[in-house]
């Protein structure tokens, strides 16, 4: 078999049959109680969250709500969150901090929703606030990039202490198509752009943007949801176990050092 290209990975990451947030919740959590709304204007459906029990651990679970069907995706904007979604995420994570519970986020989005109301309600401000907020949150944060890690809309809930990424997930500053459209002036050059951008899990591990690659079942997670979810569960629980031992002041300072080191090539 030919070597898997970056574009093969893009296709796998976007495969509609890939497990999405609701599949993971069903397969990983013995209980999940969704909580709604940002207390300002809305309950965004593109990003959802609630308290959950994972392998006996009580956590706050947040994630982009990409669906498997057209109906699900229409409701949840294909997992593209509005500002209300990021504000809800912060509200719930603050609750987790208050009750000393860790936060686990599932990242799977083409990007933050590009809409008129999204801009009017401050998409940029909501993402910026979220980055600032999670960088200082006084409770452990474990991030799992499960599918598409689409730019700022993904990063807004991907600032944490331990960043896991599934083997066939992608994570990028811009979609390969978007990048090809701008730098190649030709959207069909997406495979070239995907290669150049280095968006696969092994590449991102080398660059220090993530901490761990979670292996997928042969052929990809879409072939065996159960095995894929079980690997994610194991990795999340191991990360939580290690992070819970660290005193919270140390944890937050270590998180800062980790974020501070991203792309520091400068002496």
């Amino acid at each position: 078999m030919a070597k898997k290209t970056a574009m093969d990975c893009v296709k796998l990451a976007r495969d509609p049959k890939r497990p999405h947030l609701k599949d993971f919740i069903k397969l990983i959590c013995s209980d999940f109680e969704e909580l709604h709304g940002d207390r300002l204007v809305n309950d965004d459906r593109g990003l959802i969250g609630g308290f959950a029990t994972v392998g006996g651990e009580k956590v706050l679970l947040l994630g982009h709500n990409k669906g498997a069907t057209v109906e699900e995706n229409m409701e949840a904007n294909f997992g593209m969150a509005n500002p209300d979604g990021y504000r809800k995420a912060m509200r719930l994570a603050k609750l987790a901090e208050k009750f000393h519970l860790p936060v686990v986020t599932f990242v799977d989005t083409p990007g933050a929703y590009p809409g008129r109301e999204a801009e009017e309600r401050g998409q940029a401000e909501a993402i910026a606030k979220s980055l600032e907020f999670f960088s200082r949150l006084r409770t452990p944060v474990v991030v799992v990039v499960t599918g598409e890690g689409g730019s700022g809309g993904a990063l807004a809930i991907a600032v944490g202490d331990r960043i896991l990424m599934m083997e066939n997930a992608i994570y990028s500053v811009i979609s390969p198509e978007g990048c090809a459209g701008i730098l190649w002036r030709d959207g069909t050059k997406a495979p070239e752009a995907a290669e150049a951008l280095k968006i696969t899990a092994p590449d991102l591990l080398k660059l220090g943007a993530i901490d761990e690659v979670v292996k997928e079942p042969a052929g990809g997670a879409q072939k065996n949801h159960k095995a894929a979810a079980s690997a994610v569960k194991k990795a999340v629980l191991a990360a939580l176990k290690a992070l819970k031992k660290i005193p919270v002041d140390v944890l937050v300072e270590k998180r800062y050092e980790k974020i501070r080191a991203y792309g520091n090539f400068y002496s």
Partner: peptide, 12 residues
């Protein structure tokens, strides 16, 4: 874009 994921990480 030319600096890939680590340019995104500068936002964080």
């Amino acid at each position: 874009m030319h600096e890939g994921i680590l340019s995104l990480m500068q936002m964080a």
